[in-house]
Simulated scan of single mutants.
Amino acid sequence: MPLWKLAAAAAAAVTLLLVGCGREDSQTALESAAQSLQDSIENKDNEELMAIIHPEFSANQRLDRDWVQRTAAMMFLRHGNVGVIALNRQSWIDPTYPDKGYSEAQLALTGAERWLPQRVGHYHVRLEWWREDGEWLLARLNWE
């Protein structure tokens, strides 16, 4: 095999490998953003929570970013402990638009003064993430 063909094949293999790694890194970052969202709620960290929320955030097509801040503050003040139990959570990147990602899960959201939950809600949630400047931000939230 001529040297130029070998070099071209090696360059193609390296390119495919790098594209695959970039996709894996994006997937890992998306999953990390979803975990950070859960952690910020459980840690009652309103500042960290709001850092994850996109400026154009919308929930169920009628609630905005201010709603997130007010609701979180109220929940954090009302309950000594806040828990998020995510079941069947999965995240994926849109194959057509690599700067869009999605997460879907069954959630149990609990609030308690001490250890026993006083309030429990079960939800099916779908989150839409937008990547800006290398960071995944929560842009859309819908639940049932």
Rank of each mutant, 00 (worst) to 15 (best):
M1R: 04
L3A: 10
W4L: 02
K5S: 10
K5P: 04
L6I: 05
A7N: 02
A8S: 06
A11F: 00
A12F: 00
A13P: 00
L16P: 00
L18M: 07
L18S: 05
G20W: 02
C21V: 13
C21F: 02
R23T: 01
R23V: 00
D25M: 13
T28F: 09
T28N: 06
L30D: 03
L30S: 06
L30F: 00
A34D: 05
Q35W: 00
S36M: 04
S36G: 05
Q38I: 12
D39K: 11
D39Y: 02
D39H: 07
S40C: 06
I41L: 12
N43Y: 03
N46M: 07
E47G: 07
E47W: 01
L49D: 06
I52C: 04
S58M: 11
A59S: 13
A59V: 08
R62E: 11
D64M: 10
D64N: 15
D66V: 15
V68W: 00
R70V: 15
A72C: 08
A72H: 10
M74P: 00
F76W: 09
L77M: 10
R78S: 11
G80S: 05
G80V: 09
N81P: 03
L87M: 12
L87A: 14
R89A: 12
W92S: 15
P95W: 11
T96V: 11
K100G: 02
G101L: 01
G101E: 05
Y102S: 03
S103K: 10
A105P: 02
Q106Y: 07
Q106I: 03
A108D: 09
G111E: 04
G111C: 02
E113F: 08
W115D: 14
W115G: 15
L116N: 11
R119N: 08
G121I: 04
R126I: 14
E128H: 05
W130F: 13
E132V: 15
E132D: 07
E132K: 12
D133S: 12
G134R: 09
E135H: 09
W136F: 06
L138I: 06
L138H: 09
L138Y: 04
A139P: 01
A139N: 03
A139I: 10
L141M: 13
L141D: 06
N142F: 01
W143C: 15
